[in-house]
């Protein structure tokens, strides 16, 4: 197997979406981000964000906290240790892939 093929194999399928990449990028540099802030940064709809977060939550890359501030529901997201590790590995694979095609 060539270097390139190895790198492609290392790419994580869970991150194969611009929105999921965005969610993880934001959670890598911020401790805790709430739903509306995430929506604003990524400029996506509620449903779209919710479904992508659900996929990341299922992979245990993101932890979702639902709380109530007064009567308003407030949902916040945190990247798990596993998520951080997986995302870093994904980025490294991406970089390797780009270097090998240069």
């Amino acid at each position: 197997m060539s270097n390139k093929a190895i790198s492609i194999a290392q790419l994580n399928k869970t991150f194969e979406s611009r929105i999921r990449l965005g969610i993880m990028s934001i959670l890598m540099v911020n401790d805790e981000v709430d739903f509306s802030r995430m929506k604003e940064l990524l400029q996506v709809t509620d449903g779209n964000l919710a479904s992508h977060v659900a996929a990341l939550e299922k992979a245990e890359y993101v932890k979702v906290n639902k709380q109530f501030v007064g009567k308003k529901p407030n949902t916040t997201f945190i990247a798990t240790k596993l998520g951080r590790k997986a995302f870093t590995a994904h980025l490294e694979a991406l970089e390797k892939l780009l270097k090998s095609t240069k």
Binding site: R18, L21, G22, S25, I26, V29, N30, V33, L94, L98
Partner: peptide, 15 residues
């Protein structure tokens, strides 16, 4: 992939 990487960098910076 290059566009994705640039996206990631931008979003990290912006957030």
């Amino acid at each position: 992939q290059l566009a994705a990487l640039q996206d990631i960098r931008k979003i990290m910076e912006r957030s």
